[in-house]
Design a protein around this nucleic acid. Structure first.
Length: 294
DNA sequence: AATTAAACCTGATCGC
DNA sequence: TGCGATCAGGTTTAAT
């Protein structure tokens, strides 16, 4: 599922592939995806048609398109959504990839519910099996006041995200460390996959309370966040589920992931531990019971 | 106010 | 083989 590294990969791709292009038209078979946009899908279409994509950037797990008229498109891919660039034809209300042998013919890339026609005849598609993704447009003033924008915490890969800042954020929020790490209003971009691998790297039990963390432990988590996220960006994300890059290609982090979805496997530190899975706030948490003591 | 559960969704998997 | 139940989980919304 798209977290910081996956969203960054998509954003980097889009700046190469669609920056400078104009949105010619838009299609959807799922207008509900636009319910956060003023006027729904019709309002969205009217607002962005004919606008040029000036720049694409990332805000937490959100993808932001800066448009020529000052408006901005915000896309959150949620769990199974991912943006693809290519060419398709509509047949019986289903999109068929023009390249019959390419990656875009794979099932996971075929759940297309939103399509943008671009000025160079390429297309931008949102494939989203479970239809959780969100698409909206906002003008400059409204954009700043969006909940998605207002409540987003600092980005852990920005150079100004230093240990002092991190310590401040974590210690002022009481609760279970894994939950706090995934709270987008505290730090943005970390989801379930990377939270598990970060805590394993830092040798911290996911249920540990933030108020019980010492300076050394906090430092270890801080370093692990930077290390794991940077590595995952380099490997273009994790594709254990539906995530793909804009070509439809899998990311490489899943192959080297440390604990996420490795229940029952031996701990990579060769400590003799077997990776355990528990539920924290009704989602899975994976950890090594030997390396990560409470 | 703060915490928790349900809702949004559907393909894959499991038990019978 | 097939059917129903369960699970996956980011975020919003409803309920406690």
């Amino acid at each position: 599922m798209p977290e910081l590294p996956e969203v960054q990969t998509i954003v980097d791709d889009l700046n190469k592939k669609v920056k400078g292009l104009t949105i010619a038209d838009i299609w959807t078979d799922w207008p509900k995806q636009f319910k956060r946009s003023p006027g729904g899908f019709d309002g969205f279409k009217k607002a962005v048609k004919g606008e040029k994509i000036m720049k694409v950037w990332r805000l937490g797990k959100n993808i932001i398109f800066d448009l020529s008229g000052g408006k901005k498109i915000l896309i959150h891919q949620k769990m199974t959504g991912h943006l693809l660039v290519g060419r398709w034809q509509l047949k019986n209300n289903n999109w068929v990839a023009s390249d019959k042998k390419g990656l875009l013919t794979e099932k996971v890339n075929g759940y297309i519910h939103v399509m943008f026609w671009l000025s160079n005849k390429n297309m931008l598609a949102l494939s989203d099996l479970r239809k959780f993704a969100k698409v909206l447009v906002a003008n400059e003033r409204d954009f700043k006041n969006l909940e998605d924008v207002k409540n987003i915490g600092p980005d852990p890969l920005k150079p100004d995200f230093d240990f002092k800042k991190f310590k401040n954020l974590i210690t002022k929020k009481r609760g279970v460390i894994k939950k706090v790490l995934m709270d987008q209003s505290i730090i943005s971009g970390i989801g379930n996959i990377y939270a598990d691998d970060i805590l394993f790297t830092a040798k911290i039990h996911p249920l540990k309370k933030t108020e019980s963390l010492g300076e050394k432990e906090l430092k270890a988590i801080f370093e692990a966040i930077k290390k794991i996220l940077k590595k995952a960006v380099k490997l273009r994300g994790t594709s254990t589920s539906d995530y793909r890059d804009t070509s439809g290609k899998k990311g490489g982090y899943g192959e080297v992931r440390l604990v996420y979805q490795r229940e029952g496997e031996k701990c990579s530190r060769k400590c003799g531990g077997i990776i355990k899975r528990i539920k924290i706030n009704s989602r899975s948490a994976h950890f090594c019971p030997i390396c990560q003591k409470i």
